[in-house]
Simulated scan of single mutants.
Amino acid sequence: MRAFARDLGISPGRLSEILGGGNIPGKRLTRRIITSLKLDADDTSHIMRVVDRQKKIQTELKGAHQLDMDQFSLIADRENFSLLCLLETENFVSDISWMAERLNVSEATVRDVLERLSRLGLIKQGPHGYQSTHKDITTSHNIPSAAIREYHTQGLKHATESLLNVDPDLRDITSIEMPTDLNKLKIAKEHIRDFRRKIAKLLEEGETTEVYRLNIQLVPVTNVAGSRKGAHT
């Protein structure tokens, strides 16, 4: 690593951060890395696209509060993020009964969530009641997989309940199956991440009165070679 860093003209520490995903290189340095590794045209195109996308995400999330592993594990339950979003709506009422009714949970659950979020410094009580301490919240890249699985499991369950109980005019649940080139899966996932952020930006502009969740599932229907029954990702 020291020799490679020397050839690139950067410190070993910075190279270590780049390899670990903690530092996004600029286009010039990315070009030097590509040249040093003698990458072909396809790999070069992919790396340049990833760097551009990460720089864009970095700009969009500038100033966002990043949760560490322990914090995310503590608030992985769906109600925590739902309440944080509810606080940002324009018609928010800082009343436990009102919050419980809006989120369709018990008042005891609301009290527990408020206590947990207050203890973690994610909300505070101001002159007009509860309010968020951070407008945007993100997670680190090394969240425990068990916490991620639990969070997404709850989201999928909620989507199923919406399919059965919510008027079609107030929700959108669709699916499509297609023959797939696995070599393009990484690119597809990049497009999904970009789409997710564009939708969030669109819906957060204007008069925000409700809290919505966007679930996007891209999963194999066939038995993909190399996968195993019961595997978790």
Rank of each mutant, 00 (worst) to 15 (best):
R6Y: 06
D7K: 12
I10T: 13
P12W: 14
L19W: 02
I24N: 05
L29H: 10
R31N: 11
T35A: 12
S36K: 07
K38V: 13
D40P: 01
A41N: 08
H46Y: 15
I47A: 10
M48S: 08
R49S: 15
V50D: 03
R53M: 14
Q54P: 04
K56H: 15
K56N: 12
L61H: 09
Q66D: 01
M69N: 07
F72I: 09
L74E: 04
A76T: 15
D77I: 00
F81H: 00
F81E: 02
S82W: 03
C85F: 00
E90H: 03
V93Q: 02
V93H: 05
V93Y: 03
I96K: 07
S97H: 04
S97P: 03
R102S: 00
L103Q: 01
N104P: 02
S106P: 03
R111A: 11
D112S: 15
D112A: 06
L114N: 03
I123E: 01
G129H: 05
Y130K: 03
Q131P: 05
K135M: 04
H141D: 12
H141N: 14
R149V: 12
E150A: 15
Y151I: 14
S162W: 05
L164I: 11
V166I: 13
D169A: 15
L170W: 04
I173K: 08
S175E: 08
M178F: 13
D181C: 14
N183M: 09
I187L: 10
E190V: 11
D194I: 14
F195C: 11
I199E: 09
L203V: 09
N215M: 07
V219Y: 08
V221L: 11
R228D: 06
T233W: 14
